[in-house]
Design a protein around this nucleic acid. Sequence first.
DNA 1: ATCAGATGTGGAACGGGTTCCACAAAAAAC
DNA 2: GTTTTTTGTGGAACCCGTTCCACATCTGAT
Lengths: 328, 328
Amino acid sequence: MASIRDVAKKANVGPATVSRVLNNSGYVSEETREKIENAMTELNYIPNELARNLFHKKTGIIAVLVPSVANPFFAEFVECIESELYTYGYKTMLCNTVKEGNAELEYLDMLNRHIVDGVITGVHSLDVEEYKQIHKPIVALDRYLSENIPVVAVNHKKGGELAAEELIYCGCKSVLHFCGSKAVESPYHNRHSEFERIMKKNGIKVHSYELEWNRFDADYYEKVIKDIFSNPLEVDGVFGVDQIAIRFLNEAKRRKISVPEEIKIVAYDGTFVTGLTEPRLTVVAQPIDQLARQSAELISQLVNGKTCKNKQVLLDVELHVGNTTRNL
Amino acid sequence: MASIRDVAKKANVGPATVSRVLNNSGYVSEETREKIENAMTELNYIPNELARNLFHKKTGIIAVLVPSVANPFFAEFVECIESELYTYGYKTMLCNTVKEGNAELEYLDMLNRHIVDGVITGVHSLDVEEYKQIHKPIVALDRYLSENIPVVAVNHKKGGELAAEELIYCGCKSVLHFCGSKAVESPYHNRHSEFERIMKKNGIKVHSYELEWNRFDADYYEKVIKDIFSNPLEVDGVFGVDQIAIRFLNEAKRRKISVPEEIKIVAYDGTFVTGLTEPRLTVVAQPIDQLARQSAELISQLVNGKTCKNKQVLLDVELHVGNTTRNL
DNA sequence: ATCAGATGTGGAACGGGTTCCACAAAAAAC
DNA sequence: GTTTTTTGTGGAACCCGTTCCACATCTGAT
């Protein structure tokens, strides 16, 4: 509760001198420094960060927006980004945007209200106009927002290619493709278009199933799988994000469809859940830690006044062959 | 960038009047209100929350400390708590404490430095003394910190009991029990002691395997499973947290040990990952949403000056019978 | 007509640090 | 011995809302 002026009074100095001791700036004699330090410990003085923040107009807090941290991809991303931001000296404010009301907008507004210094958004909601109005530090994860806003993403085109080639290599003739909604402008569409392009080029039939863009819950995924299996399956290959792939695999097992003999499965993302199945999934893995590292670096630059317009960071994906495409 | 004084000048009023308009407090004539509102929109005025915070000595931010959001239990908890805090009007600052350095202490210090209004800690590190020094709003998840700090936890004793009874009911004679380190003071020990008590009372042999308290990564879990299977298994039942249970199940399948015929498995926690196995796991499920709801309510009370010393909230667990203990 | 109360408004002080500037004393330079 | 520099320190203004208090006007009651 003691203020800098209390300390100053106790040490018989001016508040400016105490401030200098606090920040190790300017000239302070050894003698007065000690006097002040004693006074500080005596009064149990702890500087009020709020006052500092007001003066400096910054809080050292970065908001991280994701649809839902309960989703493994975002959980891992948030885990990494928090860690990265921490090394930069920033704290992480977390916002899950899948909730009633427009939490996304509200969090963006925190930029204007000086509550956070920057925003990293991994959210794929529909209205992009709001972002274009804001000329503050924003970094987008896997989403095009505006020319001013740098994007961090993986090379989805390569991702689609790797998946397609693996399924082709394993002899598939007709595949089921779970793809994201085209309502959202995101680099991830490249994976879908590239996957389908290559498949078609090789004369392989592709059945596309468009997933809703804002659903990440178990119920939805179960519904999708049920939906798929309600009609006779005429495919020998499947490509979809982790949780869809896992659930497809499980349903196949329940129906005594052997994997990979009868159906091959390739999962996209490669979060830790793909390590929880038996057989282990073949995955196209996103380097989530690198996505986080790049996002943190970019936001740090933006917060410190550097500009990086039109910037797009593309990271490499990797195919990890498991036992759902080949019998190793 | 416009300040309240800029608005006041433009509207030919005092800053106090602008403040009253901003907060809808005190008397303001309709005429001046309009003048001020016009000035505000003209100047594109957005109040600086930092200045407000300084005056009110609060930020509306609650820090949530967890070992790692990448762990599904904490991911789900954080998802829920963020949502709950949001409804109370609080923002969530996230801190993962499994990193170099003492992040936990650093985040606790934010209470003193007025960066956050309260802390909800789900961290199980070893030194508790620091918490006893702090007389600020803190709520502990599943951990005893000090008499002043309320604890939210599930009824682990009942959890241990449910698991034990299920395994007994299914005819187990010798079980493997993965338990947490006794180095940490936590309500969760009740589940282990109760489980073992009941088992022993029923003449069932219990092999205990003590897990490290601060490891939540895949590598560690894999190592544990490998360790377990490196010796001949002489059990027909297993009880452990979700990820251990899942990995045990997978390894059993790899070794053609049939579940539940030869070995029954009960998982503890019941996070979404237990819905990703085939067969589906039998679990003792923690009501994570309620843990979050209670934590949020308590921290909100504390932040608003109410005291709740010696308080402990115990929530009920539920057994969800899956196909790893019985053939349904 | 008189007075209490409601209504309306602005100046000043405050919250708690930070920094600019002025000024003094000591050390170094010439 | 005089002039620079360097070192050391404190007061005041500032960051930007908020609230207290004083003062003014207007309404309605007696």
